[in-house]
């Protein structure tokens, strides 16, 4: 059955604008729509009424790219678990519901417009060591020739599934980026290819994380719960161990 919804959506015209919640009504919403399709329909309605459409981030709409964000009814990526906003469907809501839609909020994620936030702080952290330096001149060692335990390979893969969407920061009461940085440090710390630059990587990435103004982790565990890829808190503990190993 199609639904009629009340929407309270954050509108903000640029980083320096104060911004406010604006009320919208949307009728005949199919429960089979994705959340972003619902916003597409709302934008068509706004454009037809001569208004400015709501800006929001999206790209692959398959839960892979990490581009979509949104804080829906008080939760990053909405009320479902293990999904991004683009994988959230309107069947999770009921006819007559009021839905609050806000951008991911953190000082390090300034609003660009409406629901779009600047998450390039994550890119700058990655630039400080979220990679391995490999000589690709043609005589690169075959990765399969390096023995790696199944357990380490699995844990590294799990860490590498982080799509850098920023839900961890958005949901953390301290706006901490430690789950993201922990995952990026861990995916290399667990593998032989990551050992050569391990100390510099963790030192530099943590320094950049601090410089970007993210808060400090207090182990509430909210990030792990809201992470669309289920990145474990273990990665934060591993980052802490790597950090001390690099500095002692």
């Amino acid at each position: 059955m199609d639904m009629n919804l009340k929407l309270k959506i954050w509108r903000q015209n640029g980083a320096n604008d104060q911004g406010k919640m604006v009320d919208y009504s949307l009728s005949d919403v199919s429960p089979d729509m994705s959340f972003l399709e619902m916003l597409d329909v709302l934008n068509e309605q706004i454009i037809n009424e001569g208004g400015e459409p709501i800006a929001f981030d999206h790209d692959c709409r398959e839960g892979i790219c990490g581009m979509c964000s949104l804080y829906i009814n008080g939760e990053a990526h909405g009320p479902d678990r293990g999904i991004t906003t683009c994988q959230l469907h309107m069947r999770k809501f009921k006819d007559g519901d009021t839905i609050y839609i806000e951008p991911f909020r953190a000082k390090a994620f300034p609003v660009i417009k409406d629901l779009v936030v600047d998450r390039t702080a994550f890119d700058r952290i990655q630039h400080q060591g979220g990679f391995i330096s490999v000589n690709t001149s043609g005589n690169t060692q075959d990765a399969n020739s390096l023995p790696i335990s199944k357990h380490a390979a699995d844990e590294a893969m799990d860490a590498a599934t982080c799509i850098g969407c920023g839900a961890c920061v958005a949901t953390c009461k301290n706006s901490s980026a430690m789950l993201f940085v922990g995952a990026k440090v861990s995916q290399y710390a667990l593998l032989p290819q990551g050992q050569v630059e391990a100390a510099d990587r963790v030192r530099n990435m943590v320094a950049q994380m601090d410089a970007e103004g993210f808060g400090n982790c207090t182990n509430t565990g909210a990030c792990e719960v809201e992470c669309p890829k289920g990145i474990s808190l273990d990665n934060i503990a591993r980052m802490n161990r790597e950090f001390f190993k690099a500095n002692i």
């Binding site: 309270k8 954050w10 008080g74 939760e75 909020r105 706006s175 509430t220 909210a222 719960v225 809201e226």
Partner: peptide, 28 residues
């Protein structure tokens, strides 16, 4: 740490902290 964390964060209009963490962990 509390002050620095407050400086790093921005309040939501609607936040459902109980959905993903315990009251005690959020109110140390």
């Amino acid at each position: 740490l509390e002050l620095r964390n407050k400086q790093a964060s921005v309040k939501y209009v609607k936040n459902n902290g109980a959905a993903n963490s315990t009251w005690v962990s959020r109110n140390m």
